[in-house]
């Protein structure tokens, strides 16, 4: 069929785990934006949701770290974190092994990826699913890009991967939704947690909305690290969605730095042709 939905959202564990510590107005604004995104997603009647996330050592480690990995199973479990800490109960999310295999085969025509027949979700996927598919009734295809263990996946390869995902989505009869998850500037899981470079974020989101390929690929990891922190490496997931959107224009529906969530919380979508 085709790609029917493309968007990005934050996945910080504090969004659910530290909700009670946040400014209620800011928190509720983000939750409302997630509700809006879920309604938009459901309105496109997707058959599956491809979630491109930057995981945090739930499945992949430096003993065998893939630049890209896609899940290929009928079921996935999560979260690996303590449920009382993340405030998300243990769940089993549906997958679609057969669909995953067809998507993977097409992506592999241009990008070398790993596939995984088992996958434990951490907050990188669990938090978005908590809001976007709370009944766990939509098959998920998890995707990971190495944003954690240097040497990281090059930015331009994330773009090429996004183009491959789009081609694969267009090649299958199912209606495919695509969501990238991650942070923009942030310094998570360090004593700097809560530090957010709003100016950098807004410039990045401007490039993202204009689907400015050269602008998005103009970043490099040294300046990202200096200006946007190690959490900024996760823009790879946003770039993948940009490439998959094929030049479509984007809109930021919610952006607000929420320090207790450790990130500028973001909900944005592309208007696909």
């Amino acid at each position: 069929m085709s790609l029917v939905f493309a968007g990005v959202c934050s996945h910080a564990p504090g969004i659910t785990g530290r909700a009670d510590l946040a400014d209620p107005v800011a928190r509720d604004g983000l939750y409302d934006a997630f509700d809006w995104m879920r309604a938009e997603l459901e309105a496109t009647r997707p058959d599956a949701l491809v979630v491109v996330a930057a995981e945090h050592f739930a499945n992949f480690f430096m003993n065998n770290m893939p630049a890209f990995a896609m899940g290929m199973a009928d079921h996935y479990q999560g979260p690996i974190e303590d449920p009382g800490w993340l405030m998300i109960d243990r769940f089993t999310a549906p997958g679609n092994r057969q669909l995953s295999e067809r998507l993977i085969q097409e992506v592999m025509q241009t990008v070398d990826i790993a596939y995984a027949e088992e996958w434990l979700f951490d907050h990188g996927i669990a938090v978005p699913l908590h809001f976007l598919t709370p009944r766990f009734d939509l098959p998920v295809v998890p995707v990971n890009i190495n944003c954690q263990g240097p040497p990281l996946t090059p930015l331009h390869r994330a773009w090429t991967f996004g183009e491959a995902v789009r081609r694969a989505a267009d090649a299958v009869p199912e209606r495919i939704a695509l969501v990238g998850t991650g942070g923009i500037s942030h310094w998570p899981a360090t004593p700097d947690s809560g530090k957010i470079n709003e100016e950098w974020d807004r410039e990045f989101l401007d490039r993202w909305c204009r689907n400015d390929r050269d602008g998005l690929l103009g970043y490099d990891d040294l300046t990202i690290y200096a200006d946007a922190g190690q959490g900024g490496f996760e823009i790879r997931t946003f770039l993948t969605v940009s490439a998959a959107a094929g030049g479509a224009a984007g809109t930021v529906h919610f952006y607000r730095p929420i320090p207790i969530f450790a990130v500028g919380c973001t909900i944005a979508t592309y208007a696909l042709e």
């Binding site: 564990p13 945090h56 050592f57 690996i80 954690q148 998570p188 899981a189 360090t190 190690q230």
Partner: peptide, 8 residues
Amino acid sequence: VNGQILMH
């Protein structure tokens, strides 16, 4: 130790 590993 990577902060994400340490946080968990």
